[in-house]
């Protein structure tokens, strides 16, 4: 039997959907016994949400004042404390999990699989390398404890059910370092859906030409209830903030609908959107590589087309 511990990601009040995707990945392992661990200052609300996820057998609630902010250096010894007896320790492949899980793996002296896109059993996993240009099947020797980050774009979120798994309180006995202090985090824009989990994404590239022009996309996004994304070129040019970057070095996403305006389609960008259900590309260059993978392509001037799409949607809704 595989005993799987999943480290929950949350903001103190709400469980991040990435955690439910880790649960889905873990459920693919035959005989999985799944525990979710919630590290928080007061984890009552988050633990209650985690407990309702289909497939979760138990929730560990680890409350400590030091857990008000998710600092890898502070969390890692606590994860190690509760990981005793677990064969697998999973976290999401978000910046939270990417920061924390290797620190946990090193303390456990365990190997780590990053960006797991499929679990083919308790010891066999698939993950991307070379910016997604190679998919590697990795075998972990039986009996080796394994740490993994789960590529959230590869899994559906486990559904929340009516029944709840038991929540167990755990006291922190691990010694916590004080050498790392949280200072601040820039305010997240809460008026639009989160890019990582949105079902629709409107994205722009260098062709937008300026930060002011980029605002054109916000209007369409709001009409569609979509999140806004950007190519690395647009971010580097200062047209959009860094947290909107989609691609290998930004966010890897899998929305139902991805609308790319003025994005040529560099490999590193395409890596970030390959799992999108439908890709729409609008670009004035008919030779742009993005048309090679787009489900629907339109060659033309985005400055005319975006307002027109907005008008057409408005006219029919």
């Amino acid at each position: 039997m595989s005993k799987i511990l999943i480290v929950a990601e949350h903001d103190g009040a709400k469980l991040n959907p990435a955690t439910a995707k880790c649960v889905t990945c873990a459920r693919a392992i035959p005989g999985a016994d799944i525990t979710v661990a919630v590290f928080a200052a007061d984890g009552a609300a988050v633990a209650a949400q985690a407990a309702t996820l289909a497939g979760v057998a138990k929730v560990l609630r680890v409350d400590h004042a030091a857990n008000a902010q998710a600092l890898a250096a502070t969390l890692a010894p606590q994860v190690v404390q509760v990981a005793a007896g677990y064969s697998h320790v999973f976290g999401p492949s978000t910046t939270f999990g990417k920061d924390l899980m290797p620190r946990v793996a090193a303390l456990l002296d365990a190997p780590q699989l990053s960006d797991v896109m499929a679990a083919e059993g308790a010891t066999r996993f698939r993950r991307p390398m070379y910016a997604g240009n190679a998919i590697v099947t990795v075998e972990v020797p039986a009996g080796t404890r394994v740490v993994a980050t789960v590529r959230t774009a590869s899994f559906e979120a486990a559904a929340a059910g009516a029944t709840a798994a038991p929540v167990e309180g755990v006291a922190v006995t691990a010694e916590l370092p004080t050498h790392t202090r949280f200072v601040s985090v820039s305010a997240a824009r809460s008026d639009r859906p989160d890019l990582q989990t949105a079902s629709r994404v409107v994205s722009g590239g260098r062709a937008l030409g300026s930060a002011d022009n980029f605002k054109l996309l916000y209007g369409l996004a709001d009409r569609l209830g979509a999140a806004v994304g950007a190519s690395r070129a647009a971010v580097d040019a200062g047209y959009a903030p860094n947290d909107l970057q989609v691609g290998q070095t930004g966010k890897i996403i899998a929305p139902e609908l991805y609308l790319a305006f003025g994005i040529s389609g560099a490999i590193q960008h395409l890596t970030g959107i390959k799992d999108a259900r439908t890709i729409v590309a609008v670009n004035k260059d008919a030779e742009a590589p993005i048309f090679e993978i787009a489900d629907i392509g339109l060659v033309g001037d985005l400055f005319q087309i975006v307002p027109e799409i907005e008008r057409l949607i408005g006219a029919n809704d």
Binding site: P111, L113, I135, V136, T137, E139, T144, K274, F291, I293
Partner: peptide
């Protein structure tokens, strides 16, 4: 610690 069993090219999307 890990055995890389096989490398494969990713599934490609076709032109729409």
């Amino acid at each position: 610690a890990l055995q890389l069993v096989k490398f494969e090219a990713p599934a490609t999307r076709s032109r729409g």
